[in-house]
């Protein structure tokens, strides 16, 4: 089963490799990982999408918490979070296909951010499943390049991660 975890970390030298070493050393899986500084000084936030049963997920949570540089592990497996991903998609678009790409972009509320006579580059955001869906529709037209950020997630409601 797939799980999304957010990890609040000290923005320290080597913290990314500590987390990565933990996953590779213990045989945990990383499907996607994104990391960037937060609004709080010296803190970064990682969003990790991983796979495993309940016992593995519990170990991942505990092992992450054990790292000195980790302040908090937020487990969003219960679906309590809003998840978004951004994708940049370069797709072939010639003749009739140009109109089809524009229709798909419109339906998914995506944006064209670069255009040539032979291609469109699209910016799409949304739940990772939505990104999968737009890619499925564009694939037959000829995907030339796809860049995905990996999920980022934030809890629902008025409270921040630390209250």
């Amino acid at each position: 089963m797939q799980h999304t975890i957010s990890v609040i970390v000290e923005n320290d030298f080597g913290v990314l490799s500590r987390v990565a070493t933990l996953f590779s050393g213990r045989g945990f899986n990383i499907e996607s990982l994104s990391v960037a500084p937060t609004n709080e000084d010296g803190l970064s936030r990682m969003t990790i999408v991983t796979r495993g049963d309940a016992q593995i997920l519990e170990q991942i949570n505990k092992q992450l918490n054990k790292l000195i540089d980790v302040l908090k592990v937020l487990d969003f497996s219960d679906g309590s979070a809003i998840e978004r991903e951004l994708a940049l998609i370069k797709v072939s678009a010639e003749d009739d296909a140009r109109a089809e790409v524009l229709r798909v972009v419109d339906i998914f509320r995506a944006k064209i951010i670069d255009v040539t006579p032979k291609s469109y580059t699209i910016e799409a955001t949304g739940n990772p499943l939505k990104i999968d869906a737009i890619l499925d529709l564009l694939r037959p037209l000829g995907l030339k390049e796809v860049v995905r950020t990996g999920s980022v997630a934030i809890g629902r409601g008025a409270k921040g991660w630390n209250g």
């Binding site: 030298f13 080597g14 490799s17 500590r18 070493t21 050393g25 000195i68």
Partner: peptide, 14 residues
């Protein structure tokens, strides 16, 4: 050495 010992230390500092 920090990289080499990362999996076998509780923590490390440079």
């Amino acid at each position: 050495i920090i990289g080499i010992t990362r999996p076998c230390t509780k923590h490390s500092f440079l």
